[in-house]
Nucleic acid binder design. Sequence first.
DNA 1: GGCTTCGTACTCGGATAAGTTATGTCCGAGTTTGATCGG
DNA 2: CCGATCAAACTCGGACATAACTTATCCGAGTACGAAGCC
Lengths: 159, 159
Amino acid sequence: MRMGEGVEWGLHCCLALAWLQDEAPIPTGRLAELFELPPVYLKKRLQDLVRAGILTSVPGVKGGFRLAKAPEQITLLEVVAAIEGRDEAFRCTEIRRQGAGAEEPPTAFAKPCGVVIAMRRAELAWRRELAAQTVADLMREAAPSAPGRFRRHYARLTT
Amino acid sequence: MRMGEGVEWGLHCCLALAWLQDEAPIPTGRLAELFELPPVYLKKRLQDLVRAGILTSVPGVKGGFRLAKAPEQITLLEVVAAIEGRDEAFRCTEIRRQGAGAEEPPTAFAKPCGVVIAMRRAELAWRRELAAQTVADLMREAAPSAPGRFRRHYARLTT
DNA sequence: GGCTTCGTACTCGGATAAGTTATGTCCGAGTTTGATCGG
DNA sequence: CCGATCAAACTCGGACATAACTTATCCGAGTACGAAGCC
């Protein structure tokens, strides 16, 4: 089970845009240079974030992307779900009903499969942790005492 | 992020073998018939479980697979890790150090990336939930009052 | 008749191909900007 | 000199190739069983 690398890109881009919340929109190429990423593919991922309501896109020559809401209101779960998809990682295909299970009475499958319950419980814990953290938390954790340095670092995006 | 369907197969096979713990080893073909799965590919997944020490394989004409230890000692995390791999789903490539980050002093990266910390925390919660449940728990949950029916259901593997 | 030997059939084990998803790229629609032209 | 118009440049948005991984398969090594031959 691997998560696409676009998740890492999206999170770092959200973080960078959070530091420049009030500035002009940042085009894809500038963000791609900041992290040395393939520009067009990064744009694809940013579009996913736009569809999820996390970013807003501004077309035109002075266009680009900016945060659609405050960093405190962007959870990591939203970003991950927007890029990686909202489906559960574990997909039950009900193999218990196939083969020999087809000869069982339907009442045997009244309860959901115990395997699915267990896997869902684990994924729920994962989602709960991701939903508990916001982009603002990442900002605070990264710069506990000196936020100026980070703002200056990302300020090169605006020039 | 999707999990391979082999995980579902492996869990159900472990469950089936758990009900027949003391019986003779079950060959792959029999398990494949039970769930209508491609036999050879299922064998590949069972081999992963053997490498992880969850199953033992017996070669020869009367060979097959059986549990390597008691169901109480097989956690779901072991099964998932054996089939899906032990790497973390989120792989940090340290993109913060690339591009503009290369101009920062090395002290800027003394702390691990906050994004990684957050993602690791979520995956840890996921693993913790999986490690808290064993195959024996699945057996108990599936048959709270009538274990005989399940044992009879899986008994067709032995004939 | 009992024992040994050999052959066969069936199993696991690792190396080898097809299908699907993630990755990477290209071209079109829309908007701002700046200059140009006219008043 | 000021305003409107128009063209160009740059942006996002969605459709199109390539690469990696999952899925599926085949063939070889090894083992237990059964039969045949020998004592």
